[in-house]
Design a protein around this nucleic acid. Structure first.
Lengths: 173, 173
DNA sequence: TGCAACCGATTGCAAAATGCAATCAGTTAT
DNA sequence: ATAACTGATTGCATTTTGCAATCGGTTGCA
């Protein structure tokens, strides 16, 4: 990986980390989708990432310190990718990014419900989510065990909306 | 510009808008640097953008609704680029991005002082800044005229730091 | 034991994006 | 007159991307 930096500006450096069309998509799928394996990321990606691009970005994100890789004890070939603290602290940025996109871009209802809830939940919800991610990826103890996980909450809202949309489409047909 | 979207996910759509290495740099220079003209952006860019890339991105950002272009009455050839509301609302995202980069990436002291002040100022400072940008780019009245502008405050802090660094380097030599 | 499915990648290749230098025609200041 | 400056455009070499096929090894099942 090229380590030549264009400038020491924080925004520029951040852009050099995830200013491409795939890195943040992969992190999104790990954070919100709970994906940890290559194949999960490959097949689960809504946007259809190619396997060579995925391999390249995983390697790059590891070199940047955003991910770590470990052997899966249940399968000699399987690797488990984990988020580092550096990646987990992207949660507020992802929340803002989703909120901005929801206002200004042609988002789909189903896919933006998560962003809406995350925006409404604000910093307390982001803190809870980051705490859960630290537990899941770094093995840290959960600060507080209060109700369903943030990811489960978001996922449930998404599935409820998809189901109600399907129902509406059925009754219209 | 290609309008085919990979998915309706807010994060993905946001990434399709500025998930490249230059778009956000240009917006940064317009927002924090106050640049409005092609040459200002071309020569003032710390990262050294090429003129063809700049022309392409300006066109693209206009098509996306992030910028508008107007004639400069003082010079028949000059064009003035203005931020739209869509671009102005990126301020909190840029603030978060800068804050994240300051923590995790090898930023330079001089260039990160702005990000530090913007982070410490929080939402009130971001609101004031957006208000000033609306005045500057959209001709809207200033809500409150209170002290120096946010941009001037950030710029002054930057210059003070550069001067003190130069002084320290002199005394060491 | 054979075999299909699955594992994380890698390879070859075409297409697109990028970076760089030179250049453009029109405008302005001297 | 002319030199500098305006927002670009062009040509070209290099790099990155996207896609499809494939790799060698592992696993679960018959």
């Amino acid at each position: 990986m090229s380590m030549d930096r264009r400038s020491g500006c924080p925004i520029n450096l951040s852009l050099e980390v995830f200013g491409d069309r795939w890195s943040l998509i992969i992190l999104r799928d790990m954070i919100f989708g709970g994906r940890r394996h290559f194949r999960e990321l490959l097949n689960g990606s809504m946007e259809g990432i190619a396997s060579n691009i995925l391999a390249d970005r995983l390697k790059r994100l590891m070199e940047l310190g955003m991910l770590t890789k470990a052997d899966d004890p249940s399968h000699k070939q399987k690797a488990i990718y984990s988020l580092t603290e550096m990646a987990i602290t992207l949660v507020p940025i992802l929340a803002h990014l989703g909120a901005w996109g929801r206002v200004w871009l042609p988002v789909s209802d189903e896919l933006s419900i998560r962003a809406e809830l995350l925006e409404k939940g604000g910093q307390p919800m982001w803190d809870k989510f980051m705490d859960e991610l630290r537990h899941e990826h770094l093995g840290m103890p959960l600060d507080t065990m209060s109700g369903p996980s943030v990811r489960a909450t978001l996922q449930a809202a998404y599935e409820t909306l998809v189901a109600s949309k399907a129902l509406a489409a059925d009754s219209a047909a």
